[in-house]
């Protein structure tokens, strides 16, 4: 008997640490990929490494990264939010319209309104999904159409011109602090806060539990409905915030604002290592995924490759990213299995 007991611990230790390091390497891997793209492009075109250029990389990725945070919360619970792009468009227009007619409205109020608009739509998404227990893919696809339609009715061919937006508001879109764009700082704060919360609070760990094993979540007494609702609420709110930032960045908005963002966000999140069927992934990964995709986009232009190659390369990379992810998890599973085999053999 004692022959079997003793060695049980030893073989399980080694692969575990390897697994952990592999999992941790996910964010590191994306960061390395970003550096690789950046480095190669810089070799080709030194201007790519200028401060202004790097600032642009951050600004260009900021909105998708911000949306990626909310999307991660939702996807981790085994749901998806396709309405984010429409929310960006609607909230940006509503805030712009307010500024147009109340030019002296406090800037902060602009952000509050945008977030409120997003939160309201997020609440509808969450409510329908959790109370009627219907697939969120369908609910948020429907909301994509409805919100876009409502946006169109409100916009009705009008535009919000740069002159209507207070400078204090657009400043958020271009001012820098120690060379770092405010936009990037705001998004970084959101990512850091969400990343910290997702690691450190019981309620956010519940999100992982729900996505990882819904049945076990029920047995563990997790209030799944409430948590999923909250995830949609936050996703909507962040999309609303992204709308305000969109307006600040572009100083103009028409009906097309945010069109097609939903798929870009899902792509960034998936590249960032968030499992599309829930349970795992980090907001940092999602944000880095957004930075990577944006870096690639700008690198193509900067490398003087025809812009026509953008789409194909982005699509190809997305496929490579998820295939790599799969390969990684298979490898991890195999290494664990052979460790267990070894354990058995002893």
């Amino acid at each position: 008997m004692s022959v079997i007991t003793a060695p049980a611990a030893a073989p399980t230790e080694r692969p575990v640490s390897r697994l952990e390091s592999l999992l941790r390497a996910r964010e590191l891997g994306i960061a390395l990929a970003i550096l690789l793209v950046f480095g190669l492009t810089t070799l080709n075109n030194h201007a790519f490494a200028r401060v202004a250029s790097i600032q642009q990389l951050l600004i260009g990725a900021a909105l998708i990264a911000l949306l990626g945070v909310g999307e991660t919360l939702v996807i981790v619970t085994r749901n998806v939010d396709l309405s984010v792009g429409s929310i960006v468009g609607l909230s940006a227009y509503i805030v712009g319209d307010l500024f147009k007619y109340h030019h002296n409205m406090p800037v902060v109020l602009g952000f509050v309104v945008a977030i409120a608009v997003g939160a309201a739509i997020g609440a509808i998404n969450g409510f329908v999904t959790t109370v009627a227990r219907v697939p969120s893919l369908v609910v948020t696809l429907a909301m994509l159409y409805i919100v876009r339609g409502v946006d169109g009715l409100i916009v009705n061919g009008k535009t919000i011109d740069p002159g209507s937006i207070p400078k204090a508001f657009t400043a958020v879109g271009y001012r820098t602090l120690f060379g770092i764009p405010w936009l990037a700082i705001i998004v970084a704060v959101v990512v850091a806060t969400a990343g910290y919360a997702m690691r450190s609070f019981r309620s956010s760990r519940d999100l992982y539990g729900i996505g990882s094993n819904p049945d076990a979540a029920v047995l563990a007494g997790i209030p799944a409905g409430r948590r999923v609702f909250t995830a949609f609420l936050i996703s909507g709110s962040l999309a609303g915030l992204a709308g305000a930032l969109f307006l600040a960045l572009h100083a103009q908005i028409d009906v097309s604002g945010g069109t097609g963002y939903e798929l870009a966000v899902v792509a960034a999140v998936v590249v960032g290592g968030v499992a599309i069927f829930g349970g795992s992934g980090t907001v940092l990964g999602a944000a880095l995924g957004a930075v990577l995709l944006n870096t690639i986009n700008q690198a193509l232009v900067a490398s003087r490759i025809s812009a026509f190659w953008n789409g194909a390369i982005a699509g190809g990379l997305l496929l490579v990213a998820i295939a790599f992810d799969r390969w990684l998890s298979l490898r991890v599973a195999r290494s664990l299995q052979s460790a267990e085999g070894a354990h058995r053999d002893l």
């Binding site: 019981r202 760990r205 992982y208 539990g209 990882s212 076990a216 979540a217 563990a220 349970g279 795992s280």
Partner: peptide, 23 residues
Amino acid sequence: YQEPTLFPDLSVAENIFMGRQPL
């Protein structure tokens, strides 16, 4: 339970303390 009801994506410790992790 007869069939383990674990969260495969979470750590072993977290599986044990899900919902009442030490704060």
